[in-house]
């Protein structure tokens, strides 16, 4: 562990401490406002509700580390949920709406949906690297397309009632712990191992910090960027499946605007827009902070719309703080 610390460099970072202070303050505020807040039960519930944003933020971390940005994650999330609903109500096209009629066994459906999500990510990556479209513009286009696609295949309807396995994904408990939270933490662990202990991870960081250096060091930066977007697509789609299970519905309107929450979670976690700095563990911190802020706003009885308004300011503030000290114009790269 000592060697690892040496490798990662001990560039002490005050702002990380600041983040923990913010977290602490939020917890104190929340526990004063809601006496039951500190209870184990509530903590576990919160963990579950954070997990969905958590998944797409993991994917977003990969993309931002590679020096990009992915606006299509929330659309992929919604699309995947709708797809799950459709695949489990295949008879919808025959007029039977409420009865389950699986296209294939549920695990296979999961695999298909996760592959489709990953392919969306792959396409984003290809558009950006091969056709040289700016990251945000390409993913903005695919966001619009995929969200439209989700509405089109569902005809704008919510597809209720999923099968047991899907529900377990979103609602199931393993002992006292929500299954989706376990899945989230397993993902976090795997991803931080990938980022820290694999060649892929190291090369991704190098690509994000300085693609020129990476290239001269024998790395193909385009490849790593494409993979990062693919991973983002995968996690967005995983979030979509779990979310559908949680809500027991394939819903094309779900998670609108979450791409910004995910970006903010990543940035609050300390991953730099300039790319190449940060990591998944940091992002978990960001997700928890964002989640807690939303939770506290709800506890205050603030309705969804004013909540959005406040979140807009919080996110802007977080991004401004997060971008301080990054090199000029790092996001303006086209």
């Amino acid at each position: 562990m000592n060697r690892l610390a040496k490798y990662i460099s001990h560039d002490s970072d005050l702002s990380i401490i600041l983040r923990y202070v913010v977290l602490l303050i939020l917890i104190v505020v929340a526990s004063i406002m809601a006496p039951g807040f500190i209870s184990m039960q509530n903590m576990l519930n919160l963990l579950r509700s954070f997990s969905f944003l958590g998944f797409i933020s993991i994917g977003m971390t990969f993309v931002i580390l590679s020096g990009g940005i992915d606006l299509s994650v929330a659309a992929i999330l919604a699309f995947s949920g709708v797809l799950l609903g459709l695949f489990q109500h295949w008879g919808i096209y025959l007029g039977h709406v409420d009865t389950l009629s699986l296209l294939a066994p549920t695990p296979i459906l999961f695999l298909i949906i996760l592959s489709i999500g990953s392919i969306f990510g792959l396409i984003n990556g290809l558009l950006i690297t091969k056709l040289r479209i700016a990251d945000f513009a390409a993913t903005l286009g695919s966001m619009i397309f995929i969200r439209g696609f989700a509405f089109a295949i569902s005809g704008g309807r919510s597809i209720f009632n999923l099968d047991g396995m899907a529900l377990f994904l979103g609602r199931g408990m393993v002992g006292p712990v929500p299954f989706v939270a376990i899945l989230f933490f397993i993902s976090v662990i795997i991803c931080s191992i990938i980022l820290r202990y694999t060649i892929f991870g190291k090369r991704l960081y190098a690509t994000g910090e300085n693609p020129i250096v990476a290239r001269l060091s024998g790395i193909n930066p385009q490849k790593y960027k494409i993979i990062a977007y693919t991973i983002s697509g995968f996690f967005a789609s995983l979030a979509g499946i779990c979310m559908a299970g949680r809500l027991n519905v394939g819903e094309p309107r779900v998670a609108e605007g979450w791409e910004l929450d995910a970006i903010a979670a990543v940035v609050i976690g300390g991953t730099s827009f300039a790319g190449g700095k940060g990591g998944v563990i940091n992002t978990v911190l960001g997700v928890i902070i964002i989640g807690l802020i939303r939770n506290i706003l709800s506890l205050l009885g603030i309705l969804p719309d004013p909540q959005e308004m406040i979140m807009g300011i919080v996110l802007l503030f977080a991004i401004v703080i997060g971008s301080l000290g990054t090199r000029k114009g790092s996001l303006a790269r086209v």
């Binding site: 560039d11 960081y205 190098a206 910090e209 001269l216």
Partner: peptide, 11 residues
């Protein structure tokens, strides 16, 4: 072009 300035010597 030669160095990842934010990274450690070892990296």
């Amino acid at each position: 072009q030669g160095l990842l300035l934010e990274k450690s010597i070892s990296e």
